[in-house]
Amino acid sequence: MILQTRAIGKAFGSVLALREVSMGVAAGQVTCVLGDNGAGKSTLIKILSGVHRHDAGELLLDGVPVSFASPRAALDHGIATVYQDLAMIPLMSVWRNFFLGSEPRKSFGRFDVATARRVAREELHAMGIDIRDVDQPVGTLSGGERQSVAIARAVHLGARVLILDEPTSALGVKQAGVVLRYIARARDRGLGVVFITHNPHHAYPVGDRFLLLNRGTSLGEYAKADITRERLTSLMAGGAELEQLEHELRRE
């Protein structure tokens, strides 16, 4: 395991957003975090990525307890996060976004623009991302393309762990498929991936381990061998509730 939590917890004032959650992510594996709205998924990954500090339990990096002071600190340890809404800066070009915060340098703090352009194009190509022009503003890319660029960026900048917060939730079937493919490609390159989603149908095909959250607590972490897609779906939706809903919605 690269990154691991042990009975981790976080409270916002009187709100216990997260209680006793244990999970882990290993190199070359995808750990999916599933749960309903408000289950605590974002809170969990914000602890992993240095946005929040946990106030109970332990966060282990390579088996050593750590606590990240800032997103920068987490980044410096190779933990890169792609947030759904604030992954990229729409008015800036693809290559500027690609190297934002980790710009290649020449002497005197000069930004090596030529290298940045070339490497961005090559890296996107290597990940199989077909961007027509790296000079175009990121705002003109589709949602799926934007997520893909953010993933390629994290891979290139040497991330060991890639955290994705609901990268597929706003996307159509085809675009979601594209993003899932890049997740698989990042995994094949040896990164540990933490993939947050609402959708068990997105999680199951790429996931190696599944953490289920409900109202801030863990419903268990399962290896793929120990759980079927159907079981995952029903746990996720709270089985009985779904049956109830089906009953309610049935035509008279």
Binding site: P71, L75, L86, L100
Partner: peptide, 17 residues
Amino acid sequence: NWIFAAGGNEQAARAVG
């Protein structure tokens, strides 16, 4: 690059360091 980013979306900029 940081100036454009800080003005374009400060939170996103901070999140990438």
